[in-house]
Write a protein that binds this DNA or RNA. Structure first.
Ligand SMILES: [Mn+2]
Ligand SMILES: [Mn+2]
Ligand SMILES: [Mn+2]
Ligand SMILES: [Mn+2]
Lengths: 220, 220
DNA sequence: ACCTCTACTTTGAGTAGTCAAACTAAATAA
DNA sequence: TTATTTAGTTTGACTACTCAAAGTAGAGGT
């Protein structure tokens, strides 16, 4: 069984590979950035992960997950997201706080317990941030959505929030911005980089492009 | 913060110190036995724990917990037992299976979440095995009970099961032997080392002295 | 074709935890 | 008292993970 360290590496590579331009290849710099480790540490680990058949690593070109690595990554992601859903729905913790907790628990919870949690929640398809939960066999919905930052005026539904930072999520909550919420992009000032939004029938709010980058929406 | 390794050492020392004849002093052999580590490993760790002010260690004489070590041990015990109670009462896992799970989760669950669990359970005083749960401030009920193996015929209440082994606990379950249960010691054969028991109005059962050693009872 | 900069790799070192095997203090037996 | 046994200690080695700092491959700029 992979250690929690290895699980975190595989998860990071998996997530970076989805955003990768170059096929599914991930640059080591992105990994070290994501995990907050030095470049040398990551190089060393990549050799190790390759020797364990988790990844395929070409020096100076990057890494891609091999089958067993992807499988392991999906299991970690499944545990992470089920745990988040559990903490919000059953334990009534704030969705802004559950990420950190899940980052640790994802390595500590047994298969038996994760199965129990899954049943208890009725096999949820998405976590509290709108991220899809892989099935026990490693299937994952790979729908993609446009960022609010890249979209024109109109009516949308918030599908997913792609940022973990707790303060940001708390701010979203305070404006009822959570997955599922309907909203209207009223107008945008491209030069100032500010977007005006209406959520339900509340007062319009202003939001910067960076903040809008993490709000993934569907036209409706 | 102590690592999970250190937490397990402190917990082991704490639990062994309660059974200690020589004050609260614990022999290193008992620690290595309990944790399944070699003697040398434990010696090395004791020096380290002393340097961190968790224990007081006298070579060849044993260790005792210092204040901060005892405090840490009680916190781990609290987490462990609350988690067990949670897994049984809320998650509906079998009491025979929760120990292993708790052994890991006790190091992974945050204070915030443990507090949530405690509230959700209504501040329970004992875990599913009848072990007392220390309070957040480190107070613990230290009531002691006689082992069924050491007691004469009569009516008793099962208060506590002092053994973790899952097969044993499953066997107890199958005879309705769980904390709180009333039972009658019908007779005992001191030479054969066999005790005859009646639980509620079921058929009498036979139980050996070793098995009866783990059943802690109160006269009633 | 050469230079430079960036991203990556290598090297050397350190922490935390562990074991096997050699050694020793001290309790117990003779 | 001396010898033996037991419990504990020391030593040397190993795995897993990490960093800082020195070194290098190769992409892009001139
Ligand atoms: Mn993690
Ligand atoms: Mn999430
Ligand atoms: Mn533990
Ligand atoms: Mn217990």
């Amino acid at each position: 069984m992979p250690s929690s360290t290895v699980e975190d590496y595989l998860k990071a590579i998996f997530q970076l590979s989805r955003k990768s331009t170059d096929g599914k290849r991930v640059a080591l710099g992105a990994v070290s950035e994501q995990l907050g480790l030095t470049a040398g540490t990551v190089t060393t680990m990549m050799k190790h992960l390759q020797s364990e058949d988790f990844v395929s690593y070409e020096p100076r070109r990057g890494v891609t997950l091999r089958e067993s690595g992807e499988k392991a990554a999906l299991q970690v992601l499944r545990r992470h997201r089920l745990i988040e859903a559990f903490l919000v729905d059953i334990m009534k913790l704030d969705w802004a706080d559950v990420h950190e907790e899940a980052e640790i628990l994802e390595h500590a919870i047994s298969d038996k317990l994760i199965q129990r949690i899954d049943e208890m929640l009725g096999h949820p398809s998405h976590d509290p941030h709108g991220d899809p939960i892989p099935t026990a066999t490693g299937e994952m919905d790979n729908a993609t959505f446009a960022a609010l930052a890249d979209v024109e005026s109109g009516h949308y539904q918030l599908m997913r929030v792609s940022r973990d930072d707790s303060e940001y999520l708390k701010w979203l909550s305070s404006h009822s911005l959570h997955p599922g919420q309907a909203l209207q992009l009223v107008s945008r000032d491209h030069f100032a980089g500010v977007i005006t939004l209406k959520v339900a029938d509340a007062e319009p709010i202003q939001i910067g492009e960076t903040a809008a980058q993490a709000l993934l929406v569907k036209k409706c």
